[in-house]
Every structure is written in structure tokens, then in C-alpha cells.
Design a protein around this nucleic acid. Structure first.
Length: 569
RNA sequence: CGGGACGUAGCGCAGUUUGGUAGCGCACUUCGCUUGGGACGAAGGGGCCGCAGGUUCAAAUCCUGUCGUCCCGACCA
């Protein structure tokens, strides 16, 4: 490709409506343009990168036994009603009607679609296992799209679905995908970490998120500093923190005027926050009240709480009336004196506390000398809090570090959730009808691209890994109006291409500085500069974007040297 | 959906307080000159000031509404 034929409109200034460096550089480097909120046009450079990432994904999916297919984006509501998700999915699903009044969704994911496809095709265990995938645009009506490709409403996703005859088979498929994901993220040059994850509403089975390490990320992962346990912040398992033994004091009511928050309580009684127990009251969609108690300096983990609440997908803060109806006093709550039958959860650590302070279910009053094991009745004791930096790993006890990251992929086992709901069955060895045992595996392609840029850039622009760079090498004649230089550059460009190197010839009649700045901004891994030294002395100058190193080669053997440099990248 | 900010040329911005009919830098076109890190000179083209109402002799500027964008909070690839 010649730069004079390439539409790569770079911007001299940073676009003002972008916040993240990846977003800014993709706009500035001419990789993409915004179309509307959460929707983007990919320009030639951006699309080339996307295709390179996709092809790495395809390669690894195929190697792992996957077969590529293509399903419609538009999905009839009937399928979603079979699985129950037409109602459950909520506002995140884009919906529309055709001229006959039939309802459809713009696919946010394809479990229903693939299950419906496979149930009509696969009859026998002999056809299993089966792994089918596609790379396609998905639609999710995010409450707040932001950060460019990081969270958009239309985005490219690779989604693979595995079908097995039993759980053991499913686990093998899962392992294959887990390995393939590692290969993919390594090949695209990401620093990443697979972490245990919560399955959320899907329930059962297990799941891992692949998280690219980046301060720009929106997720947190907890990594053990000693062993290899790592989990998403929601998933990270925690054990009780056992305090030093103390003689148990009597339960005693003390006045705490206006101390309706933990901060005020700590000031009011002049006690350490670790001695307090705080309450959070939730309600489910069905208006069931759920009271949760954790140590004052801890946060409630709603994902964990949800595992103890049946038939609820999300929690909201409870109304004051509901709290009062259960015998609670907002701002001064405690499990002591709550109406029997109210769902009351106490965190493991809070339950072990000695002589703590908690509310007394009376205005402006707290209890001191609270010993939960002795004083709390009819409560569920469980791990329901959020991990904190320094918390102990459940495996080895060493402290956790919390790291920010970008979730670029997730693998999880589905079991028979969809196959049972949608009656997708096959005949096993004994001629018996059985539901498929499924798994699903997603990769955000655009998000992967953004994550790579977040990890690989400097003040001058992007530094693409060779595997996904829009071009591997840019050949820059310093003065394209100088015919000797242009000829020399063209010769090098042709020779590179003969070696199957993806090269760009920057034949624009721009000054050298402009072309150098663009090359750095766009981030080609290698730049070959063709100037007077090349024409007069036969010296080929190669600059490595990543290190800034400049290497000089002789015209006679530069090609093999360049191949070596590329090899080392 | 709640809280905050902003909509003026392709991009980045000034002008709005104190109404008088639109400007700067970059980019773009032509010519000249220049060519190893975003040159220089000259001459040009391009905007119903987001949109709709209102106030006024007169509105980018004041008022009302509306749409859009960005950032902060409840979720996910």
C-alpha cells in the first residue's frame, strides 16, 4: 500500500471529547471516527488491526476444534421467551418490531440462537463435542457508553459455544478454550491475567475472566502475592478475620445523637472503625427485605449477597418503611431485635468480632459490647463482603493486591441451563434423551484493540506489537520529490513485500518531519528511512518504534537483517 | 436514570459578562520557495454560531424549551 492511496487522516491535535489514551490515539491516528454515542466507524487502519486480531482469534479457535459460522444479528423474541430472558434481560437489550408487529432483539449475545440451531441439527452423542463460533457485532444498550471502544453499544465480539454430552466433556471443552484464550492474548501482545469470576445470574459451574492489566480498566482483580490464586474483586473468596481474644462485655445501650453513619459513630464514641458493625438494607425486585451486616470498614459485595437470595437478579436500597416494618431503625440498625423471618446476612468477619458497636434499632442509640456469636439470632453467616487491599488469600493466607484491569474475555460453563429451557436434546449411548451440556466463551475484539493501546504507547503515539500492527514496516523516503530517493524506497518496498512483509510506502510529498510524526503516532513497529545516505552510500536506516534504536545496514544484506529484527520483535 | 460541564469552519479554540450581524491557529485549494522530526511567503474556499420558539429596531450573545456530546455513580466483551 502506498500512503498516497491510503485514507489515514491523522489529527495534529488531541480530540477534545476523548478521555482515555487509547480512545484519543485511535481518533488522532485515523483508526476510527465516532458515529454516535457508543458507535464507531472503523477507518482503513483501524479495520486492518481489527482483522489481524480476528485472524489470530480464528486461528486459535480453529486449532482448539472450533468451527466458524455466522448467525443473524436479528433474533425473534420467541427464542428469548423460551429461555425466559425476553423478560429478564431488561433494558440493555435493543428491541424492535417488524412491519407485521413481530418482536425481535438486536442480539446482545447468542445462547438462544445457537441452542435453537443445534437442537434441530444434532441428534446423537456421536456428533459431540461440537464447538461453534462467530465473530460479529453485538448490541447492548449500555446505560452509559464511554471510553471509546471500551464500552460501546455496538461492538465486535467473538462468541463460541460448546456442546458436550456430559459435564466431563464440558470441562474438557472449557480447558481447551481457556488455553486458547491464553494463546490469543499472548499473541496479540497483552499483559493479562486469567482470574476466577462470578457467573452472576447464570449460576452454577465456573468461570474465568481474562483481564488485561491497565490503570484505565474498570474492573479490579485481587491477586495473591504468594500463590497463584487470582479472582475478580466480586469473586475473591475471603475468610473470617479472627480478632484477638477479649473478655466478653455486657450488651449495653449508649446514646449516640445523630450518629447515623459509621463516620459519625466513630467520631461520636471515639472508637476505631474496626470495632463497628454497619448495616446495609436491600430489597429485591419482589420487595423482599435483605439486611446485611459487615464490619464498619468493609463494603458489601452485592454479587455474593445475591447467591443467598432466591429469584432475584438485582438489589436496590431498601425503602425506610420496609426497614421499619421489619423492626429496624434506619441509621441505627442491628440484627438484635429484628422481626423473625427477615433475611439477615452477617459477614464472616463481622460474626467473629468481640465487643463491637452496632445499632440498637432505636433512634440515636447504639449497643456496645456486641458479641455477634452470642447476641445475633436467626442470621445467615457467610462471606458477603468486598475484598480489600491486604486481605488474606483463602488458599495460603498471604495478602492480596488489588489491580485494575480491562476485561477482554470471559469463559464460562453454562451446563444445561439453555438446553433444558429450550428442550435441546440428543440421544446418548443408551438411547436416552439428554440435554446438551454447554459452555460459552466471549472475546471483545474492539476492547482488545483498545487494551493493547492502553498498554503500548508513549508520548508520541501507539507502539503496536508486530502481530496486530496495521503495517509491519513503513518505508519513508525523506524527500519523495527526489526521484532517486523515491526509486530506492520503492525498491526496498517491493523487496519487503516479496518476503511477505506487510509494508507501507509513505510516498507523500510531505516534509520528512510530518511523515516521521505520523509514523510514530500510528505506531508501525519498524520504519525504514530512505535518504541521501541510502542513495549515495547504499546505507539502509531502520528505526525500531518500541526502543527508538536506529540500525544501519548495507543495501546488499539489509533484507535478511530486517527479517532478523522483525523476528526479534 | 440522578449529579456536573459543554455545543461557534474538518480539528483545537476565542467572542457571550456589557446584544450591533463572526474571528484565531491547524487542516484544505493555487502559486512560489523549502525538504532528516509537524517549514516559510502570497492569494483563496469553507460556518443559518446544535435545533425550535420568545424578547428586541437588532440575538452567537438575553429568556424558555428541546436535542446532542463529555465526565462522575448502580454493570459487562
Amino acid at each position: 500500500m502506498r500512503a498516497t492511496n491510503l485514507y489515514a487522516p491523522t489529527l495534529r491535535e488531541m480530540p477534545s471529547d476523548a478521555e482515555l489514551i487509547s480512545h484519543k490515539l485511535m481518533l488522532r491516528g485515523g483508526f476510527m471516527r465516532k458515529s454516535a454515542n457508543g458507535m464507531y466507524n472503523f477507518l482503513p487502519l483501524g479495520w486492518k488491526v481489527i482483522k489481524k486480531i480476528e485472524n489470530i482469534i480464528r486461528d486459535e479457535m480453529d486449532k482448539a476444534g472450533g468451527q466458524e459460522i455466522m448467525m443473524p444479528i436479528l433474533q425473534p423474541s420467541e427464542l428469548w421467551e423460551e429461555s425466559g430472558r425476553w423478560a429478564a434481560y431488561g433494558e440493555e437489550m435493543m428491541r424492535l418490531k417488524d412491519r407485521h408487529g413481530h418482536s425481535y432483539s438486536l442480539g446482545p449475545t447468542h445462547e438462544e440462537m445457537i441452542t435453537a440451531l443445534v437442537r434441530n441439527e444434532v441428534r446423537s452423542y456421536k456428533q459431540l463435542p461440537l464447538m461453534l463460533y462467530q465473530i460479529q457485532d453485538k448490541f447492548r444498550d449500555e446505560r452509559r457508553p464511554r471510553f471509546g471502544l471500551m464500552r460501546s453499544r455496538e461492538f465486535i465480539m467473538k462468541d463460541l459455544y460448546s456442546f458436550d454430552k456430559d459435564e466431563a466433556g464440558m470441562n474438557i471443552s472449557y480447558e481447551k478454550m481457556y488455553k486458547a484464550y491464553g494463546n490469543i492474548f499472548t499473541r496479540v501482545g497483552l499483559k493479562y491475567r486469567p482470574v476466577e469470576a462470578d457467573n452472576g445470574a447464570i449460576g452454577g459451574g465456573h468461570s474465568h475472566e481474562f483481564t488485561a492489566i491497565s490503570d484505565a480498566g474498570e474492573s479490579f482483580i485481587a491477586c495473591c502475592t504468594k500463590c497463584d490464586y487470582a479472582a475478580s474483586d466480586e469473586k475473591a473468596e475471603l475468610k473470617a478475620i479472627i480478632p484477638e481474644n477479649e473478655t466478653e462485655e455486657e450488651l449495653k445501650k449508649v446514646p449516640t445523637p445523630n450518629a447515623h453513619t459509621i463516620d459519625l459513630l466513630v467520631k461520636c464514641l471515639n472508637i476505631p472503625i474496626e470495632k463497628t458493625i454497619k448495616a446495609v438494607a436491600y430489597q429485591t425486585e419482589q420487595d423482599e427485605l435483605v439486611l446485611v451486616f459487615v464490619r464498619g470498614d468493609h463494603d458489601v459485595n452485592e454479587a455474593k449477597v445475591l447467591h443467598f437470595v432466591e429469584n432475584a437478579r438485582e438489589l436496590r436500597m431498601a425503602d425506610e418503611d420496609a426497614i421499619k416494618a421489619a423492626g429496624g431503625c434506619p441509621g441505627f440498625m442491628s440484627p438484635i431485635g429484628i422481626k423473625k423471618g427477615t433475611k439477615t446476612l452477617v459477614d464472616l468477619t463481622a460474626y467473629e468480632m468481640k465487643n463491637a458497636v452496632s445499632g440498637a434499632n432505636e433512634v440515636d442509640t447504639h449497643y456496645t459490647g456486641v458479641n455477634p456469636k452470642r447476641d445475633f439470632k436467626n442470621v445467615i453467616v457467610a462471606d458477603i463482603r468486598m475484598v480489600k487491599e491486604g486481605d488474606a488469600c483463602p488458599r495460603c493466607g498471604a495478602p492480596f493486591t488489588l489491580t485494575r484491569g480491562i476485561e477482554v474475555g470471559q469463559v464460562f460453563t453454562l451446563g444445561t441451563k439453555y438446553s433444558e429451557a429450550m428442550k435441546a436434546t440428543f440421544l446418548d449411548e443408551n438411547g436416552k434423551d439428554k440435554p446438551f451440556v454447554m459452555g460459552c466463551y466471549g472475546i471483545g475484539v474492539g476492547r482488545t484493540m483498545a487494551a493493547i493501546i492502553e498498554q503500548k504507547h508513549d508520548e508520541n503515539g501507539i507502539i503496536w506489537p508486530l502481530s496486530v500492527a496495521p503495517f509491519e514496516v513503513v518505508v519513508v523516503p525523506v524527500n519523495a520529490k527526489n526521484e532517486d530517493q523515491l526509486k530506492a524506497a520503492e525498491k526496498i518496498y517491493d523487496e519487503l513485500r516479496e518476503k511477505n512483509i506487510d509494508a507501507l510506502l509513505d510516498d507523500r510529498a510531505e516534509r520528512a518531519g510530518v511523515k516521521f510524526k505520523d509514523a510514530d503516532l500510528i505506531g508501525y513497529p519498524l520504519r525504514i528511512t530512505v535518504g541521501p545516505k541510502t542513495v549515495d552510500e547504499g546505507i539502509v536506516e531502520v528505526k525500531i518504534r518500541k526502543t527508538g534504536d536506529i540500525k544501519l545496514f548495507n543495501m546488499d544484506n539489509y533484507l535478511s537483517e530486517v527479517l532478523k529484527v522483525l523476528e526479534d520483535l
